[in-house]
Every structure is written in structure tokens, then in C-alpha cells.
Nucleic acid binder design. Structure first.
Length: 453
RNA sequence: GUGGUUGUAGUUCAGUUGGUUAGAACGCCUGAUUGUGGUUCAGGAGGUCGCGGGUUCGAGUCCCGUCUCCCACCCCA
């Protein structure tokens, strides 16, 4: 092997056969987003570090990719400070790669708040970068696919998120999945109920791991975070509530008498009511009291979607936040957002074999020829086929028929059209279906109609 | 960021206590009545064994470093 050039750690190429499938997912999602009134937005890969730093916690700052200043980037650095990276980093790097799409979006909203008319609905599908250590399904460059509505507190936004998820999954033919929902105020209420008012963040972080480490693990973590045995028993009594969605909600409502708990239960009930008005049922919906989601900026409803029967984390998630742009000094911009994990969706669909065998983006027909006269004759036919909006190509070299057909076969092209002296003389073209092997003769007009299908 | 694991043809992997020209399968190329692919058959090409150093008469095999991949934690999509 000649020294093959390598990719940076945690990055990938997407070859055509992968891109066709990725585009299938992305196009499906875009179609649904548009249908629900979301408009596209893109922001730069680079942001000023002042925008990025401090927004993701200490951990996040460590995972930011920082970009070295151009030119004589050491001119401001004192020689004594060499070796002290915390001191010289701000002097040599002012820009970084975006870490997620939410902060750039918040920056955009804060900067353009006078031009934007609220409520503002946008979607954004772009790569983000994190200097994390890669693992399976964890990359240093990956795509996020976010949709947010800002400038309204209406719960119809939450309901529309559920509808959007259902519609996307239905189009992708994914039917065995669970949309878990919960509410941050409910977690807050539980914290208060447990006797640890105000420690909902600690509670949320611990409780979120229940799927992974089990109840005992959560209990241990709560202990280490300062919860007493009595507190933990109280939490357990809430977490272990069983039943149907509305039944659970009712039981919870009767237990949580504090303001937060009541508010959470009330909003959840309202959402279900709106869902019903919209003509939607409760299928695939699950009220998961242990669902917390790590991001601390959520304040209202929270969502997470898992595909059943596939060993992979959530493929979609989101929630409501009160104050998107607060970090940029612009208050009172509430909103709700969610995102699809495209890479994970891809893996799930691959595993469940849900990709369509025929990809509409692929070439539909290949023209094969025997000699120069038939090649030349074929060029005109090719143009006419393409004019009818059918993707087609002609084999560019004078190769054996076998080779030409093999090319079509490998590329997954469904039809081969033969151009030879017979065809030129009669005007009847032999077209072969490579999927089932059938052949038929058609004149030009019929051939084009046939390929249009 | 912490701890661990892996690395041999395009791909998935064999390779015995270190011992001559490093193997298989699939894939690829060529051919089997030069107007027909996916099946079959016959040939063929392709590896300085991740990279760098060390031990040894001799290293794919042992040691050190480095990179990569993967796993757990942290965190997260």
C-alpha cells in the first residue's frame, strides 16, 4: 500500500452510496419541516470564541476546536508565558468551530431581533465539531438537524413537534419507536416533594441515567449529591408510578402539591388536550418520569425518541427553554426546539433494512452501444431522454457490451437501452430491466414514457 | 481528559514456542460462439504485515514510542 492519506481522527468521508441514503433521510426531514412552516437557516462553521466559550460548561469549553489566528499569531505572547496554555490560548486564538447549532442560532436571534418577526420558526442542518474522543456513533465532526420555534410560549409548538416526529418516521417507514416526554417543572416538583427544593439539576443528572445504571445506581449518585435516604425514598415512590400516560399524569398530579409540580402536570395535560384536538392519538407516546435530558437550559416539556429493537441511544430529542438569548443579553425569548440525530437514524435504518432499494436520485437508464455510429446516434436520444427529466447516461468508452452492462449493474441503474444498427434502422429500441431481466422493444416516444414510469 | 483494547491484500480475517518465496474468502481485472449484466468455470493482479526505533544470526510474531480504531468512564448527538 502506498502511504494512503489519512483523515483526521473522528471524521469520515461519505461516499456516493452513503450520500444517497443520507440525502433520503435529510430530504424527508426537510419536506416535513417545510410543511410545518419551518424555514431554512445556515450560520458559519466559525464563530468568535467569545460567542462559544462558557455556553457549554467547563466540559464544553475543553471540547471546543479552537482556530489559530492568522499571520504572526505569537506577536502578543510574552515569552515567559510559553507553556501556560490557559494564558496564551486567548492571545493566539479568537475563533472556534461551532459546537452545536443552538448557540449560533441564539446569537443570530439576539443580533437580528429587530428584523425577525416572531414567532420565528427555522430549521438548520449543518455539521458541528467537538474535540471529543471518538467512539462508535460519536464523531468529531457530525451533523445536527435542529428545528426551533422562538418567540411564543404556546404549547401547540410542543404538539407540532410530536406531529413532526410522527410524520418523519412514518415517511421513513420506521414504526416501532417511542416518543418519551416529561416536563422540567415536574422534575422540579419531585425535587421539592423529595425535600430538596432547588436541587432539580442534580436530580435531573442522576435520574437521567436510570436506563444505564438502574435505580440503585441512581440512588447511589443521589446520595453522593447530598440527598438523604428519606429524600431518595420519596423520589422512588414517584418514579415507580405505573400506568397509561394519562393515568400516570393523574397519579402524579395528586402527589405533587407544590407549584412546580402542579404547573408541569397542568402543561402536560394541556398538551394532551391539544394533541387530541389536532386529531392525534397517543400511540408511540410515553410519559417517562425519569426522562431528564442533560442540557440544563430546558425549562418546560422535554422529549426524547428511541427506536425500539436497535441498540443505539436516542435519535431525536428536544424541549422548551424560557430564555434562549439570555446569554447574549437579550431577555424574554422563549422557545422550543428539537433535533434529529441523522447519523444515528442512518445506522438504525441500515440495521433495520429500511432504505428503499431504488433510489430516485440514482441514474435511471444507461445507453449502451456497439460502435461509433450507434454511439453518435445515441447522443441525440440521450438528450431527449434528459429533456424529459429522466436521469440517464451513455457509456463513454467503446467497450464490450458486457462491460457496459456491468457498469449499469454495479451502479444500480435499473434500465439499459441498447443502441445498435438494428435500432438505428427500425427506430425500435431494446430496453432491458436489470432488476428482473425482462426486455422489450419500444419506439422513441414509448421508451421515454416507459422510463418516466 | 482518565483507563483499557486493536492495527496483516480493496474488505473480513488466518498466520502455530520468533525460522526460507506471508495465506484464505469475498471483491477487482482478463477470458469461456465479439448484440446482453447479476450464476458458473478457468486464469491473473494486488501486502516494505499502521508508522518509527530497539532486542536477535533472524521479527508479522518479543520490547519501547507514536498514530489509528474500538470499549468503559466523563460528557454527549
Amino acid at each position: 500500500m502506498t502511504t494512503a492519506p489519512k483523515l483526521p481522527k473522528g471524521t469520515r468521508d461519505f461516499p456516493p452510496e452513503v450520500m444517497l441514503k443520507r440525502n433520503y433521510i435529510i430530504d424527508t426531514i426537510k419536506t416535513v419541516f417545510k410543511k410545518y412552516g419551518f424555514l431554512p437557516l445556515e450560520t458559519p462553521a466559525l464563530e468568535n470564541l467569545s460567542v462559544l466559550m462558557g455556553k457549554y460548561g467547563e466540559e464544553g469549553d475543553r471540547l471546543l476546536f479552537k482556530i489559530l489566528n492568522s499571520g504572526d499569531f505569537l506577536k502578543n505572547v510574552n515569552e515567559k508565558d510559553f507553556g501556560n496554555s490557559t494564558k496564551i490560548t486567548p492571545l493566539i486564538s479568537e475563533k472556534g468551530l461551532r459546537y452545536d447549532l443552538t448557540v449560533p442560532f441564539a446569537r443570530f436571534v439576539a443580533a437580528n431581533r429587530h428584523q425577525i418577526s416572531f414567532p420565528f420558526k427555522r430549521y438548520q442542518i449543518q455539521p458541528v465539531w467537538r474535540a471529543d474522543r471518538p467512539q462508535k456513533g460519536r464523531y468529531r465532526e457530525f451533523y445536527q438537524c435542529d428545528a426551533d420555534v422562538v418567540g411564543t410560549k404556546s404549547l401547540i409548538c410542543e404538539v407540532e413537534i410530536i406531529q413532526t416526529i410522527r410524520e418523519v418516521f412514518s415517511l421513513l417507514k420506521i414504526d416501532d419507536y417511542t416518543i418519551k416526554i416529561n416536563h422540567r417543572e415536574i422534575i422540579r416538583g419531585i425535587s421539592e416533594f423529595a425535600g430538596q427544593k432547588g436541587k432539580e439539576t442534580e436530580l435531573a443528572v442522576a435520574i437521567d441515567k436510570i436506563d444505564k445504571i438502574g435505580w440503585q445506581g441512581v440512588a447511589d449518585e443521589l446520595t453522593s449529591r447530598g440527598f438523604s435516604n428519606e429524600n431518595i425514598e420519596n423520589i422512588k415512590s414517584i418514579i415507580s408510578i405505573e400506568g397509561e400516560l394519562s393515568e400516570k399524569l393523574q397519579k402524579l398530579g395528586s402527589l405533587l402539591e407544590n407549584n412546580s409540580g402542579k404547573k408541569g402536570v397542568e402543561e402536560m395535560s394541556k398538551m394532551l388536550q391539544l394533541l387530541d384536538y389536532a386529531g392525534e392519538n397517543l400511540s408511540n407516546l410515553e410519559f417517562d418520569i425519569s426522562l431528564a435530558r442533560g442540557l440544563s437550559y430546558y425549562t418546560g416539556a422535554i422529549f426524547e425518541v428511541k427506536i425500539n429493537g436497535v441498540q443505539i441511544g436516542s435519535v431525536s430529542g428536544g424541549g422548551r427553554y424560557d430564555n434562549l438569548t439570555g446569554v447574549f443579553g437579550v431577555e424574554d425569548v422563549p422557545g422550543v426546539g428539537f433535533s434529529f440525530g441523522i447519523d444515528r437514524l442512518f445506522d438504525c435504518m441500515e440495521e433495520l433494512n429500511l432504505f428503499p432499494t431504488k433510489n430516485p436520485e440514482n441514474t435511471k437508464a444507461l445507453l449502451v452501444h456497439f460502435d461509433e455510429p450507434s454511439f453518435n446516434y445515441g447522443l441525440k436520444l440521450l438528450s431527449e431522454i434528459r429533456k424529459s427529466n429522466i436521469s440517464a447516461e451513455i457509456y463513454p468508452d467503446f467497450s464490450k457490451l458486457k462491460k457496459q452492462i456491468q457498469y449499469a449493474d454495479k451502479k444500480g441503474i435499473s434500465y439499459v437501452v441498447f443502441i445498435g444498427s438494428d435500432e438505428i434502422n427500425t427506430g425500435e429500441f431494446t430496453v432491458k430491466n436489470l432488476v428482473d431481466g425482462s426486455e422489450q422493444k419500444l419506439n422513441k416516444a414509448n421508451l421515454i414514457e416507459f422510463l418516466k414510469e
